[in-house]
Nucleic acid binder design. Structure first.
Length: 928
RNA sequence: GCGAGGGUAGCCAAGCCUGGAAACGGCGGCGGACUCAAGAUCCGCUCCCGUAGGGGUCCAAGGGUUCAAAUCCCUUCCCUCGCACCA
């Protein structure tokens, strides 16, 4: 930050460093943010809890300001709000830090929590700290273990030996979700991931794959991008499973999504690590060479080798060659596939390379638009697949399937001719022997074993006699032993931990030394907040049923797949344990955008980090919060700008000074037109601000409070203001701003209260909420008189009229206007306008002129013709009397601006020549 | 390649769902008020033309629907993110 502190006017008494700690302590003492267990139907507002790195960065501050502002808003509306916070406190970085600093992960983590908690308090975030949840506490992680056991009982836990992702730097395995990009880098440390074969514990999330993908449709409160990412990740595909007879190997099943193309399947392929390929490699040198030397599953080119085998295409009865090919992956589908070069790009490339026949069996769908287009192929013909495959759905056409291929496969290929692809698929599924509908998923089971110390011990014991045996519930939690420095997994080094007895047979046994992926911790923490102290259950079912789902969840997009998918899965699994009625944890989700500097992500390595602590010291937490909420709506990225921060700070200073000045020496003016205008404006601002908070956008609300404060300046310039009106305006601004800038508004609220007390209560406008009663954090949210649409019409009329006056003065080059006369259109024009808006016949002029209300009016036929011409474009207007009132209230604005006398007349009272030009929404103007 | 989200005046950015104002707001720029002056604050202007509120052109490009399009539909181009030899 700059070294010159010119921001705060030295004459201002606004001193965040004094105000902010004071109110933080007051809130604390008064337990403003506590949510009693007895609260019903709470509004659950939640930010993703932080990993305990020791420092809040700007991303955190933004995230937590959003939920804090929203929950404060809800609280002011009288809702019971649950806004808890906790610590995602297990994980490898704590072990690394412990190593570097010669301490233990536990000690390090506790320090981090302490420091982050202090930083959160400094920011003024209002959390119910009675509900704090810390995942590295045995009181928390025992429930990870307990849930693991319940899942185990339900068959949701498996121990599988498998090839797993291994990060050599973190010395642990990673879930598929934690390996990023084509380069396969560790999500934490960007080290290239290698493969290892290990026995691992898995949660069978795939059991819920269908429900997880189907329920995405119901998550209407989630961003489309996150929903799409989850769908992609689960990657469900509908298709068919079909057995092919392979000589010597019996039936080998393939999976295909394009069963309609089966008559064009001209070869068969198996993965290099398939049983068949491994088997053949023993005999066949070519195959062995390919499998050992050539096969490159990561390469771009499809490679393969012919075998001596053939497979029988069950649709045509043909014998087709079998290849071992590296583009066939053993963990996708069944690890074997039928290849249709005519209708699949990759199969086409391979067939061309290996000189396998390419036979089209699908033609483009007949459609009038298509007739001559689509690369010159007339519809009704099979596509030219010499150069490239035709991969779209179309219509089955078996005219090129050799006649002699038919017969052995059962039905006649011609039977399917003319069917649309989708229909052919279901028909073939029914007809082909052994075939059936099948689904495939990209989603794999969730490997949760980590060979690290700082995590939840997996509550299993390995007994030579009994195998893997769960630790009995009464022995939970299995607590972590003291940390030892070592390479590899520290738990393996602690004999007292490892050596145990088998719960089943009592014989010697060894504890499982793997700990759980930390995503297990965060997959249910939002449930624990409902009853963090329960010692007999992970959470209180009745309360969780009442309080869940989370109404508004806010966090980073980086959790779009992992955390959010795991949490959804665990919620469903817990629901099936009958511990919870809900099956989805988060109703509305906002993924907040990044805080950037010059369009770049802030990062330590780039050295472009703006530290929240510095900003708080320099400007105060309120300024930082206000700037962030004002700069952009939550889901968008935005640039950190010093100018913007300063501008926010100046605004708070001005507001502070305005309130102080008002309280010290209230103005003594009487109410009048100007006052009426200001009063109306208070309602308008309130209506707009409320909408903005409701939509969680904030920006409009904050802008309106700025404008209202400016208006008070103009008010004071125009006339001696009416004290209560000024106070109402200030009270409104303070309350509308309170969710975002809670400290300064708290201070000002109590100042306004002081002013209120000085006055006789009888003087107070009736129905007005008294300022300064209690905390602004608990004050009543302002409500607007009149609906938003009406307010906007009024504001529009004033803006348009002022604009017109300016234009006339400018265009007509009027030197020094002395008198501005404004004439509202006469009553009858408003009536005619209203008729026209409703009118749906042909002859509006006739309709109007036959109405005797208009017959005698000056200019009625012309106006009727005008209306007829604009018939379609007429929008709602105010009525004549309201228009006159609104303009009368706004008169002073024009008078101030041009230093001229301004009169506003109803149409009936104004000069006839002038009034002729007036229309509803557009008064006539004469300037002299 | 597939999927999602975008492209709005010098810059940032609202509006688009629910069609009807040259298009909110901020920054920057210009002019004015206040001031000894600077800063802060306030007012106005900031696509082009215009001596009474007018006219022209405009929301990536092109087409379409409509009385009317930044807004709805189609095509193309560009950007960002996610997935990707997935059968």
């Amino acid at each position: 930050m700059g070294s010159t502190r010119t921001m705060s006017d030295s004459s201002s008494g606004y001193d965040p460093s004094a105000i902010e700690p004071k109110w933080q302590a007051e809130w604390d003492d008064a337990e403003v943010f506590r949510t009693p267990d007895s609260a019903e139907d709470v509004e659950y507002v939640l930010a993703m809890f932080p990993y305990t790195s020791g420092n809040l960065h700007m991303g955190h501050v933004r995230n937590y300001t959003i939920t804090d502002a929203y929950s404060r808003y809800r609280r002011m509306q009288g809702e019971d709000v649950l806004h808890p916070m906790g610590w995602d406190s297990f994980g490898l970085p704590a072990e690394n830090a412990a190593e570097e600093r010669d301490t233990s992960p536990e000690e390090w983590t506790r320090k981090c929590i302490e420091s982050m908690k202090a930083q959160m308090s400094e920011m003024g975030f209002g959390y119910d700290w009675d509900r704090e949840v810390t995942t590295c506490d045995p009181e928390y992680y025992r429930w990870n273990q307990w849930l693991f056991k319940r899942f185990h009982e339900e068959g949701l836990v498996e121990r599988k030996g498998s090839e797993v992702n291994w990060c050599p730097s973190c010395e642990t395995v990673l879930a598929d979700e934690q390996v990023e990009g084509e380069a396969e880098l560790c999500w934490r440390c960007d080290t290239p991931v290698t493969q290892r074969d290990l026995d691992q514990w898995f949660l069978t999330i795939t059991d819920y794959a269908d429900e997880l993908v189907d329920d995405i449709d119901e998550l209407a409160g989630w961003p489309e991008s996150v929903r799409a990412m989850q769908r992609d990740w689960i990657g469900r595909q509908h298709g068919a499973r079909v057995p092919f007879e392979v000589e010597g190997y019996g039936e080998v099943e393939i999976f295909t999504t394009r069963l309609d193309t089966i008559h064009g399947a001209t070869f068969f392929a198996v993965a290099p690590d398939s049983e068949i390929a491994q088997d053949l490699a023993k005999e066949d040198e070519d195959v062995a060479h390919f499998v050992e030397e050539v096969a490159d599953p990561d390469g771009d080119e499809p490679n393969g080798v012919a075998t001596d085998l053939t497979a029988t295409n069950p649709a045509t009865g043909e014998e087709i060659p079998v290849f071992v090919a590296d583009f066939v992956l053993s963990d996708v589908g069944t690890g074997a596939l039928m290849a249709v070069p005519a209708h699949d790009e990759r199969d086409h490339a391979f067939a061309t390379k290996k000189d396998v026949p390419i036979r089209p069996v699908i033609r483009p769908e007949d459609s009038e638009d298509d007739q001559r287009e689509s690369s010159g192929q007339a519809s009704g013909d099979l596509p030219d697949v010499e150069e490239t495959a035709f991969t779209e759905d179309g219509v089955v056409d078996h005219s090129e399937v050799p006649a002699d291929a038919a017969g052995t496969g059962g039905s006649d290929p011609a039977d399917y001719d003319g069917l649309a692809s989708a229909d052919a698929r279901s028909a073939l599924e029914d007809d082909l022997p052994g075939a059936g509908h099948d689904k495939q998923y990209r989603l794999r089971d969730w490997g949760i074993s980590r060979q690290r110390y700082w995590g939840t011990p997996i509550p299993m014991v390995h007994c030579e006699e009994c195998g893997a045996v769960p630790v009995p519930d009464e022995d939970l939690p299995v607590e972590l032993p003291e940390f030892v420095q070592t390479t590899g997994n520290p738990l393996d080094e602690v004999d007292e931990f490892v050596q145990t007895t088998c719960p089943d047979c009592g014989g010697p046994a060894e504890r499982e030394t793997d700990t759980m992926d930390t995503f297990v911790d965060s997959s249910w923490y939002f449930l624990r907040y409902t009853s963090p102290d329960r010692e007999d259950a992970p959470f209180d079912t009745a309360r969780a049923n009442d309080w869940l789902p989370v109404d508004q969840y806010v966090g980073g997009i980086e959790h779009a797949v992992m955390h959010l998918l795991y949490a959804r899965f665990v919620t469903k699994a817990i629901s099936d344990l009958e511990l919870l009625d809900h099956r989805e944890p988060f109703q509305n989700l906002v993924t907040q955008g990044m805080v950037q500097l010059d369009g770049e992500k802030m990062s330590k390595s780039k050295g472009n980090v703006v530290s929240p602590q510095n900003i708080v010291e320099e400007y105060g937490a309120d300024t930082a919060r206000l700037f962030m909420m004002q700069a952009a709506r939550p889901e968008r990225d935005f640039d950190w700008k010093d100018e913007g921060v300063e501008s926010s700070h100046r605004f708070l200073t001005r507001l502070y000074d305005a309130v102080e000045a008002h309280v010290d020496s209230p103005p003594a003016g009487e109410a009048g037109d100007v006052t009426d205008y200001v009063r109306r404006e208070i309602d308008r601002v309130t209506a707009i601000a409320d909408e903005s908070y409701e939509q969680l956008t904030f920006t409009e609300a904050l802008r309106e409070t700025r404008e209202l404060l400016s208006l008070l300046d103009r008010y004071a310039e125009a006339t001696e203001p009416h004290a209560e009106t000024v106070e109402a305006a200030l009270s409104t601004i303070v309350r509308l701003l309170a969710p975002v800038a809670p400290h300064v508004t708290e201070e000002l609220w109590s100042e306004l209260g002081r002013a209120d007390d000085q006055r006789e209560s009888a003087e107070r406008a009736s129905g007005e909420t008294a300022s300064g009663e209690g905390f602004v954090a608990e004050a009543e949210w302002p409500t607007a008189d009149g609906d938003l649409g009406r307010h906007q019409l009024e504001r529009q009329l004033v803006e348009d009229t002022r604009e017109d006056v300016r234009q006339i003065v400018d265009v007509a080059d009027i030197e020094d206007p002395s008198h501005v006369e404004i004439a509202v259109a006469p009553e009858w024009k408003f009536e005619a306008h209203a008729i026209a808006r409703e009118f749906d016949g042909d002859n509006l002029v006739g309709e109007i002129m036959s109405d005797e209300r208009f017959r005698g009016e000056d200019g009625a036929p012309d106006y009727a013709k005008d209306l007829q011409a604009e018939l379609q474009t007429l929008t709602e207007t105010l009525d004549a009397a309201t228009e006159a009132e609104v303009l009368a209230r706004a008169r002073w604005l024009i008078a101030e601006e041009f230093d001229a006398e301004v009169t506003v007349r109803a149409g009936e009272d104004a000069d006839a020549d002038l009034v002729r030009k007036a229309e509803p929404g557009r008064p006539a103007i004469n300037i002299e």
